[in-house]
Amino acid sequence: MLNIALPKGRLGSDVYKLFAAIGCECPSILEDNRKLIFTNEDAGVRYFWVKPVDVATYVEHGAADIGVVGKDVLMENEPDIYELLDLQRGCCRVVTAAPAGYIEDQSLPLRVATKYPHIAAKFYAGQNRIIELIRLGGSMELAPLAGLSDVIVDIVETGSTLKENNLQVTQVIATSSARLIANKSSYKFKGEKIDRLVGKMKEILK
């Protein structure tokens, strides 16, 4: 049995279709209900729906053998896992953004609002820029507008939310997309099965 953690939401449903296409379908998953675990004994797979940021935790602790998670989450949490495949889905950029026309005062610590404190700290440390981190859970765009921060570090897909709030991308830190990850120990004991699955998925993604 292979336990697979999928991120709840649009990306998860999209990625499930990939799994279904390579013979790991589990029709009950498409039923509209609140169940979180779906098993298909014949295909030897069990799916968990988990919060996107929790996927790596499930995999690192071995509750799931493999999972699908955004590169942004991997960069933030640096879990001890294998990252086996780029699924080319859920593409976005991790960026710094500021109000249009913002001019940085280099003499003061930069106030950075983000839900990616690790990525932000590492990025600015690499530039020797002293910052003050402000952790937020969501609606990052509001922070500079309300005077809470100078800039934000966040993920951007199309940039339309930024634009609507009169913010603009100032620097691109990294690009992100959904990645297939595996627990290290699971990969030792179920490696053939996982490699087969990854191989089939690669074919589809070509």
């Binding site: 602790h61 071995g62 120990s185 699971s186 004991f189």
Partner: peptide
């Protein structure tokens, strides 16, 4: 994929895993 700091390690490196235990 096993790596060790070259300031300390040289030569052989190894890691052991047991079934149903998630980490090394």
């Amino acid at each position: 994929s096993i790596q060790g700091d070259l300031d300390y390690y040289n030569g052989l490196l190894f890691r052991g895993y047991a079934q149903d235990i998630p980490g090394a």
